[in-house]
């Protein structure tokens, strides 16, 4: 009912003046989600490695869409618990080679329909984060990770957290805008270990 009123007043507003209505990120109903999923299924085509299964929403996407990326605590907690269970930790050390990690952090390629699946992709970490102070071309969608190990500690708990965060960011923040690199099959175990080293090796430029 409320939604209907909003739609009507939106239309009236549009007709009345030249500038556009104020848009808010509003919650969605199950029916609205079903409508969008049907439209996506109809209007997209698989291309290269980008298969149509990528448009099938999982529990995280569904709940985040229902709650406008701001789910109630109980929902967020149960999503995070379930996502935490998806993380597959390596049996040996979590620290790889920070030099490889740097390359993976720099590369914004991978998993797009125009790219060969055989070519190893990157994490595009610099698209969103500051890491090494030497690299000044960095995005700001995520927090700065400059001096990550130096300030947060180099120990096993931090290694486990960093590995988990990269593997599945939603295990710690249900509707994070950071992709789930391990869970989605975008980065391999070795690549994630190399990134953990880039963040947490005392010799890494990130910690200078």
């Amino acid at each position: 009912m409320k939604r209907h009123l909003l739609a009507v007043s939106t239309a009236a507003l549009l007709a009345a003046c030249a500038s556009a209505p104020v848009v808010e990120h509003s919650k969605m109903t199950g029916a609205e989600i079903a409508q969008i999923d049907a439209v996506l299924k109809r209007d997209f085509r698989a291309k290269g490695q980008a298969k149509m299964t990528r448009l099938e929403p999982d529990a995280v996407q569904r709940e985040c869409n229902l709650h406008a990326d701001n789910p109630p605590d109980s929902v967020a907690r149960s999503l995070q618990e379930a996502q935490l269970k998806t993380i597959k930790y390596p049996s040996d050390s979590l620290l790889g080679d920070w030099k490889n990690g740097r390359k993976i952090a720099e590369s914004g390629r991978g998993m797009q329909w125009n790219e060969k699946p055989a070519n190893p992709g990157g994490g595009g970490c610099y698209n969103c984060h500051q890491l090494s102070p030497q690299q000044t071309s960095h995005g700001t969608l995520g927090p700065s990770l400059k001096g990550f190990g130096k300030t947060r500690g180099y120990g096993p708990d931090m290694q486990r957290y960093a590995y988990g965060k990269i593997y599945n960011a939603k295990a710690y923040s249900a509707c994070s805008h950071m992709p789930r690199f391990g869970h989605s099959g975008s980065l391999s175990e070795q690549q994630i270990k190399d990134l953990v080293a880039y963040l947490l090796d005392p010799k890494s430029p990130v910690n200078q």
């Binding site: 980008a50 929403p57 805008h177």
Partner: peptide, 9 residues
């Protein structure tokens, strides 16, 4: 505002 795709964007 719809989260979708392999990277949940």
């Amino acid at each position: 505002f719809y989260r979708t795709g392999l990277w949940d964007f």
